[in-house]
Design a protein around this nucleic acid. Structure first.
Lengths: 259, 259
DNA sequence: ACCATTACTTGATAAGTGTCAATGCTTCGC
DNA sequence: GCGAAGCATTGACACTTATCAAGTAATGGT
């Protein structure tokens, strides 16, 4: 298990990668064989990078060679599209890959760690010498990118086809499945995004989001502990709030209730 | 140039693929060497498929092996998310690949040809015997998927960060750059989507879209010929209508005006 | 443990968009 | 070239959501 040069960037803590840790929730990879192989490639060519909560990793459009693999944590891609306004575009979960090619060419963009996050940085050119490893990596990246595209499409559906309330419900379900503890029909999870972040991501006003949360709480669908924890009282009930919940369950690793 | 078994599906006309034709507008591929190689792989393993205007290709979630390459035309991925409502999610242009993995697991989804379209169907398993060709294909698919993800993010930005009018402006710019004839600062292009389709895609009401078009026409930004052709009177003027136009230009192959 | 700061909630109001219905224009078939 | 059917436009109205302002709760630092 050789490690390559570690060139620290943007104040990220970097260190050689040891054995990859277990992923958090998320959907389970279908073929564990290739997952093993991926971990080896990551360990061989990658450099471990730790991001603190709220840390920003500016997207360097001039450097398409760098690839990041998310080992743990939750990151969000933010772009400055219109004027000074930040627009969250996509959420990155453990198992995802991030690279510059995924970002529309806006004036600026950042990948922001919403929780502490463990990343692995790989210079794709460094893998070029080993065709076998490169194939492995290309395949893993391609597969994950397809999955992210599907999730992106789900997000588009969430934004377009749903009422505000359904949008919020579907989002909480996603977050719960990805980062929460599922116990029977309930989920408890952190809310690593602020109300403003969630509102922007769901294309809502923060005030409106607050009202919607109040309504959902009043209806007994969810509850909150402090500002940054949410409890889904009943997944079934939550699912009734939004028509895209089934697809959300499948894409984000829940077990579909039979009914 | 060997051709594989052609198993016709859903009334699509199928035929062995000859030499791939030139792509239409769109951004230019950076390395023509690998583009050549891709055409060869497509010619070797692919089956040509022609889609008529408005033809639906139902997405078969049980068949992840099939890959489609878009040679010409414009297709749109439609999902049934909420109730009976159709929701357009993504547009596929020449150069794009389509596969089941890209589609969120909704109750049903269709790929609909909005213009006559030439596709190439490939069974990925049929390429498995040649590691060299498989690598080539995987790489091409991966790269294109990343690009489509970026476009998807741009669409999310368009839906979230923009006023309705800006949304429409950005969309017309995209369509013009992809399918239209650019002459100096003007573009003439077909509108292969009906007002309803455009409205759904931009998450607007068809009535509202109509009003916005009327406003844009009154302001001299665009004009229409009949129902299915649009003229952008001035790209510069159009760009002033929407903050994401620069990114749209880059991603969809326009030449940025220097100012 | 306190206070200052920041984040969130809530109310009143306005703006924008969706809905419904009626009308006008295109397009396609004969 | 004509007529019928479908698509697009426009107006009146209702409803959702954004905005602004004020007040309340939570968080973090000393």
């Amino acid at each position: 298990m050789k490690t390559r040069k570690s060139s620290p960037t943007n104040g990220f803590e970097s260190a050689p990668v040891g054995a990859a840790e277990a992923f958090t929730n998320g959907p389970v990879a279908s073929d564990t064989g290739s997952e093993q192989a991926l971990e080896e490639v990551l360990a061989t060519y990658g450099v471990a990078v730790k991001a603190r909560r709220r840390q920003r990793l500016p997207v360097d459009f001039k450097n398409p060679d760098t690839l990041y693999f998310v080992k743990s944590g939750l990151l969000i891609l933010n772009s400055v599209c219109a004027g000074e306004r930040q627009q969250p575009l996509s959420i990155f979960y453990p198992g995802d890959f991030f690279m510059v090619d995924l970002v529309p060419p806006f004036a600026s963009a950042d990948l922001i760690a919403m929780t502490e996050a463990d990343l692995v940085r790989i210079r794709q050119s460094s893998v070029a010498n080993s065709p076998e490893d490169l194939r492995m990596l290309d395949k893993a990246v391609g597969k994950q990118t397809a999955d992210m595209f599907a999730r992106s499409n789900l997000h588009i559906a969430r934004l377009s086809a749903l009422s505000s309330e359904s949008r919020v419900a579907a989002f909480i379900l996603e977050l719960g499945l990805r980062t929460g503890q599922v116990v029977n029909d309930t989920v408890t999870c952190d809310l690593p995004l602020s109300r403003n972040d969630i509102a922007d991501y769901l294309s809502l006003n923060a005030d409106t989001l607050s009202r919607i949360m109040t309504r959902l709480k009043a209806r007994g669908v969810v509850a909150t502990i402090g500002r940054s924890r949410a409890i889904v009282k009943s997944i079934k009930k939550l699912c009734r709030e939004s028509p895209i919940c089934n697809a959300t369950m499948v894409l984000h690793g829940g077990t579909l209730p039979q009914e």
